[in-house]
Nucleic acid binder design. Structure first.
Length: 436
DNA sequence: TCTGGGGTCCTAGGACCC
DNA sequence: TCTGGGGTCCTAGGACCC
């Protein structure tokens, strides 16, 4: 029964805390009179709904629905629309995380409105996981005014599922614990929820699963993981184990620096001229560079893209991007902008009406340990062998693959190899699955 | 008239490496 | 001056998430 791998440590238990209708709830905190008004928060340019109140969800309005498409409905039901205020949402999010940290420092901020908590070591102070969940829920409500739901389970994917139940099924009162639920009840709930609701199952996969006869969460839970891997790949295999209560996804307590920083916007109206595009590209580059410096990174590659309006089927379509490698990685706004504009000029084509422009800054994943300037101009004949020897020597000393050679333009750069993260880790896989 | 923005991971396979 | 043919790198594209 007990696996040797875990005999020394408690088996993991996750709580997923998710703020209900986050943006809408933020707006309501500062406008309590809207508490039961059907409302949505709109995206940039007031284009589409990025958050919906329960009342609006009940009307069948989907996430991302364009505002103009729901105007009739809005009139009929008195749906209120707000423009988004990301500064406010960001601030509220941080307050919630601060409160969560009082419960445990072992916490992963998964998104602006969701955090995973490792709670196995917190439970001694509580009668049950549900009591802990209620405490979290109440404290956040009291201190921030925001409503949350809590899902508790032995794997992240199941905690997500638990959170789903906590939200949709009033019987749980906003806190659902699967870790102490008996199997019969668990299977019952699983059989009542569509497989499309599972974390990691998107539209495409759901379709394929359904053609295989896998329609509910329970169906997927009972599918043999190894077989699912052959059909769908390692992500699906991991997912299947997770549903069985075998934790394969660890808590990422430390947020790694972003690998890509994107800044892009749709235009309020269509844009034709290069000048106007250049202006927006410059703005985007500036914003992206700010984010870059915030996380103390430098960019080694800059991508510029421009697009026409893909929804206008009668218009000539054009979508192009260009990647500009930077010989000297930098966080300097002026240099980055200069390069970005050069890229834009290269892909700009007259005669189109543009809807969107953007910039992507790609980081150098790893810090160079051998300065590229040492090898300026590339390697001459004979150098390669000598450098390989150096490489081998360093690798022998510090472990295989500490260094790898990488080509950047005409220069050679040696970098620390990033940590070799295996696609899954197997240490928990010998645990007793929920389904046998 | 009007359709968001910002991310991640995985995989395949040809290029190309030292 | 000088290891090298067996890996490894890179990129695009697909899938997912909030």
């Amino acid at each position: 029964m007990s696996s040797s791998a875990n005999s020394s440590s408690k088996s993991p238990l996750f709580a997923l805390v998710d703020i209900n209708n986050f943006y809408v709830s933020c707006e309501r905190v500062f406008a309590p009179q809207l508490e039961s008004t059907p409302m949505v928060v709109l995206s940039n340019n007031d284009g589409c709904a990025v958050a919906r109140s329960n009342e609006v969800k009940a009307l069948g309005v989907k996430m991302g629905t364009p505002w103009f498409q729901m105007k009739d409905l809005a009139k009929q039901y008195g749906i209120l629309a707000c423009s988004s205020n990301y500064t406010l949402y960001h601030d509220m999010s941080q307050r919630v995380v601060q409160i969560l940290r009082q419960f445990t420092p072992h916490l992963e901020v998964y998104s602006i409105d969701e955090s995973f908590l490792a709670i196995e070591s917190v439970l001694q102070s509580y009668d049950s996981p549900v009591h802990l969940g209620k405490d979290i829920k109440e404290r956040i409500k009291q201190w921030t005014g925001l409503p949350v739901c809590v899902g508790i389970a032995p794997s992240k994917t199941l905690a997500k599922f638990a959170n789903h139940l906590a939200k949709k099924q009033n019987i749980f009162g906003g806190v659902c614990d699967l870790s102490t639920m008996n199997k019969q009840d668990l299977y019952q709930w699983m059989s009542e929820v569509s497989v499309a609701e599972v974390w990691g199952v998107g539209r495409r996969i759901a379709k394929r699963l359904e053609t295989m006869g896998i329609q509910t969460v329970l169906d997927l839970t009972q599918a043999p993981p190894q077989m699912m891997r052959l059909q769908f790949g390692v992500v699906m295999e991991r997912l299947c184990y997770e549903l069985r209560g075998v934790s394969c996804l660890r808590l990422e307590e430390i947020t790694p620096p972003k690998q890509q920083i994107i800044a892009s916007r749709s235009f309020g109206k269509l844009v034709i001229g290069l000048d106007e595009l250049a202006e927006s590209v410059a703005t985007h580059t500036t914003r992206a560079a700010e984010k870059l410096r915030e996380q103390h990174s430098v960019a080694g590659l800059i991508t510029v893209f421009i697009q026409t309006n893909r929804f206008m089927r009668n218009e000539p379509q054009y979508s192009q991007s260009i990647q500009m490698p930077l010989v000297a990685p930098t966080d300097n706004t002026f240099k980055l902008t200069e390069v970005a504009i050069e890229g834009l000029k290269a892909i700009y084509k007259k005669g189109y009406r543009y809807k969107k422009a953007g910039v992507v800054l790609s980081l150098i994943a790893d810090q160079p340990v051998v300065q590229s300037s040492l090898f300026e101009g590339g390697l001459g004949k004979g150098q390669s062998g000598r450098l390989m020897k150096t490489l081998d020597a360093i690798n022998a000393k510090y472990g295989k693959h500490t260094l790898r050679p990488a080509a950047t333009g005409t220069q050679q750069t040696w970098r620390m190899k990033s940590e070799n993260v295996s696609p899954h880790y197997t240490s928990h896989w010998d645990q007793l699955p929920l389904v046998s």
